[in-house]
Design a protein around this nucleic acid. Structure first.
Lengths: 248, 248
DNA sequence: GCTATGTTGTGATATTTCTCACAGAATAAC
DNA sequence: GTTATTCTGTGAGAAATATCACAACATAGC
């Protein structure tokens, strides 16, 4: 039989998987015990719960061990990526439809969409979708398909066909490798059909990446340099189409 | 050019991807500014940073206030729903493909899928997808489309067409109203085409809901009682179709 | 130079959270 | 039944965090 305490631990565990954070006060109300008891439950289960200034959070280790999350945690270019997105956001205009590629880089772009712009955003990454879902005054279209944990994105023919029904004003593409002669490459082949279809449909295409990607070449080629209006890094924007300029 | 503040945001962003949480005091020391300034930086970037009792955390870790999340937080039937899913999970068999409907009820089912079963799971709810993404040894297929914040799910023709490419062994459907004469109804019309298509394709359909849904009738009708093998509530399983017997 | 605008630091005060000891309640053992 | 043990709630003081107004500083434009 489950003891009172075990029942509480289980309930609290459930609450934490539903919401990532539960306040001590809420937890006490939810479990029908005093705050002191919740404190003790949490303190006695350091492998299960973490504690942060009045709030209960999942223990550091268990929250997520998906490959994509691990990659993000080890990312040392987060600042540069954010900065690149800051420059990219200049191309977002009210009432338009934008496409946001998958990958850690463009996740930062979501927060930079002004709340009063009534944007329609298209994505195919689970993480980007989560962020878009939290934005107010924004319509989201997601391309579904089979899930790929390595990039937290989806692929498949129906998702790509969805694009035929959409008008894309601005597309923000990301790449793991950017070679000035060869063009843009990524790691995962399943992303290629989506990227290529988007590039062919969108009015304006921008390649967004931190400068550590410059000069690199990855397995999956998806577009030549001329496919993009410009390359946007943390240092700003560089034209790629038309009159080519050198990249620092 | 990057302003002082932007530089700080970027540095803080980097620090947060290296470590999950950074204390206000550490952040102030790291950035070489006062705690008050860090507070302001964090408060002015709610999409980027979260704030939890003196600690700065990545925004993803913060609870959202989307309508769907609020509904879940206020849910008084969580225990019954979990119990119903416990019964439903008996119908999950190794190496098969299951469909998981949207709604709070069936989110609990995800945690009950055994890790060694190599299941393929189909879903069209963002919350269910997040949970499925955290499971190991599981393939996920998501039906995309236009996002509906009210139910955190997607709708659209391409998503429904995806179903034609899939073989579904077991489908778990949820309903907001179950009338023994009329059948199953839900609140949001956009869910109806998905549900109906799934019911027509799956080998076994189960209706999963807590008993508070019994006798209720909602706006969007999607299936008569005979469409399901059985109704599964927190009290167990009740045959609805064929010559099955009631299972307490 | 000057002003206008925005940013940052300080300190006082209010609020919240933390710790601890002890008493009362529940449970298990006998 | 009794005793022993564990669990739980309360309250008070200590510590930490939050909020606010205002002054000091920086920056851009003129």
């Amino acid at each position: 039989m489950a003891s009172r305490r075990e029942t509480r631990i289980a309930t609290l565990s459930d609450a934490l998987s539903a919401r990532r954070v539960v306040h001590l006060r809420e937890a006490a109300a939810l479990l029908g015990v005093s705050e002191m008891t919740v404190r003790r439950d949490v303190a006695d289960n350091p492998g299960l719960f973490g504690y942060l200034g009045g709030h209960i959070v999942p223990a550091a280790g268990i929250e997520s061990d998906a490959p994509y999350e691990l990659a993000r945690a080890a990312d040392s270019h987060a600042g540069a990526k954010r900065q690149a997105c800051f420059h990219a956001a200049r191309h977002i205009r009210p009432d338009e439809t934008i496409f946001i590629d998958c990958g850690t880089t463009l996740e930062y772009l979501v927060e930079l969409i002004p709340d009063d712009y009534a944007i329609t955003a298209i994505c195919y990454s689970l993480n980007t979708a989560e962020r878009l879902a939290r934005k107010a005054n924004l319509r989201m279209v997601m391309l579904g398909g089979v899930y790929h944990p390595s990039s937290a994105s989806f692929s498949g023919a129906p998702g790509i066909e969805t694009l035929d029904q959409l008008g894309i004003n601005v597309a923000f593409l990301s790449a793991a490798g950017i070679d000035l002669a060869r063009g843009a490459t990524c790691v995962h082949f399943h992303e290629v059909p989506v990227k290529q279809k988007v590039i062919s449909l969108a009015r304006e295409n921008y390649l967004v990446a931190d400068s550590s990607k410059l000069g690199k070449l990855k397995a999956a080629f998806f577009a030549p340099p001329g496919a993009f209006r410009s390359l946007i890094t943390e240092d700003g924007e560089t034209a790629l189409a038309g009159d080519l300029m050198s990249v620092p």
